[in-house]
Write a protein that binds this DNA or RNA. Structure first.
Lengths: 241, 241
DNA sequence: CGCCAGGTTGATTTCGCTCAAGCAATGTGG
DNA sequence: CCACATTGCTTGAGCGAAATCAACCTGGCG
């Protein structure tokens, strides 16, 4: 992970393309401006860290563009990728309720822009704007449920099925569907990262991919993935609860 | 799971023994009373369901006494135990932000009392009392981090270590420590439930227990567990991140 | 040209799952 | 009160799948 570049604020929150998808969509112009004044911008190239687990938090992080992987390291140095964050998403919402060290690492998987907001300003806004407080709670609850679903899958589904589910999720975000029901996908993640999301070693993931190719469900070539039939891929895995 | 008994409100939130540990600790007397008026009480014996996944939610659930297991069923009918909730905890906080069906099941593992509050009343209170809103967000974030930690453990720790961690957690809640560093514990859960929390089949859990006993780390007899040396048990597992 | 990171593939071992039997505690009906 | 089912748990045998260790390939890149 190379260093990040902290730049002075360029654009404003008001004109942010992902504003309506973000936590701040229920803010008035005035409130937005107040937030905006505290804003710093971090530009990261692919692979650059936005922040590292253990760093003191500089504020509330909000993805403006690109895609950011959120990872957690355990005591043995294993790293688990918890998920990807996209424009409008908040990173490390722990800093919403208490400052301190980052409990996760975050790095750009494509060139990305992330804004950093003053926690006090955000906190003030939360107090003054119940609609945003509710919105924030809703998002956090949604994320909690995502995590719990992942726990259930980790406990019950075999690795192969977990990987197919991951592929289907990535297709939603990064894929393009053709008229004939096939689709293509440029993976934003390395094999190792994929493996760390599925919870298996990377050699095992290689074999899983080989098996899926043998079954004619997907074709991998580097980071290019093509899926001959989306329907068949969906059918290859138990119901999406 | 047998049926639950819904009873008229007996005691009040104001006199609730777990009020200060609950979500409502920052409420004024007036606010508490307003909530209290909407309250219903559910008494459950061991094994009785508080609610089942898929049921329409009757409101916000708050544990008053006892201990409640929160479980999730997946499409194949596998059930995973997500955790235990104790007095002061909220169940299924999804209902905080939107009504609908329960996304988990909850059943009492010891005789328990759970209060049900009107979601509208709670929602009103959230809007009017930023301190409570903040408190609620804090709790939800904390739970999210718990879930993410569990994900990391599921992906990196072997079953044996995951079980020891679970034992250590249960010791905190249900154990009694002796002066000599040994401790005892009355398990509130069956072996199957323990297995479903660790993410292995119950036969495998039996073998894990047998191995731990062979190592002299614990002694099991029914639901009675004795740990000769707490320190040794802690040392048997990687650092508690 | 050689090095290196990322990826694949192979051989071997380990370990959790499955199926199956056995056992103790509890409950039930005759 | 006893025969018998039931439930929760343990134990064993065998299998299959993932981890591990290791070799090897491939495409950058200095």
């Amino acid at each position: 992970m190379r260093k990040r570049n902290v730049m002075p604020s360029t654009d404003s929150c008001r004109t942010c393309a992902s504003r309506l998808r973000s936590n701040w969509r229920s803010l008035s112009e005035v409130e937005l401006q107040r937030l905006d004044r505290t804003r710093r911008v971090v530009r990261c190239d692919t692979g650059e860290a936005v922040f590292e687990q253990g760093d003191p938090s500089l504020g509330i992080y909000c993805v403006r563009s690109g895609a950011v992987a959120v990872r957690k390291l355990d005591a043995e140095g294993n790293t688990v990728t918890l998920g990807l964050s996209y424009p409008g998403d908040l990173l490390g919402q722990a800093s919403l309720v208490e400052e301190g060290e980052h409990r996760t690492s975050a790095d750009a998987v494509v060139p990305s822009t992330v804004c950093v907001l003053d926690p006090r300003a955000v906190s003030d806004t939360l107090v003054r704007n119940p609609a945003m407080a509710r919105d924030t709670l809703r998002r956090t609850v949604a994320e909690l449920e995502l995590a719990q679903d992942a726990l259930v899958r980790a406990a019950t589904l075999p690795p192969r099925d977990r990987f197919v589910r991951l592929l289907l999720d990535l297709l939603q975000r990064h894929g393009e569907t053709c008229a004939d029901g096939s689709c293509r996908l440029e993976l934003p993640l390395s094999r190792r990262d994929l493996a760390s999301m599925v919870g298996v070693r990377h050699e095992t993931l290689s074999r899983i991919i080989a098996r899926l190719e043998a079954d004619g469900l997907v074709r991998f070539s580097g980071r290019r993935v093509s899926v001959p039939s989306y329907r068949r891929l969906v059918a290859a895995v138990p119901r999406t609860a």
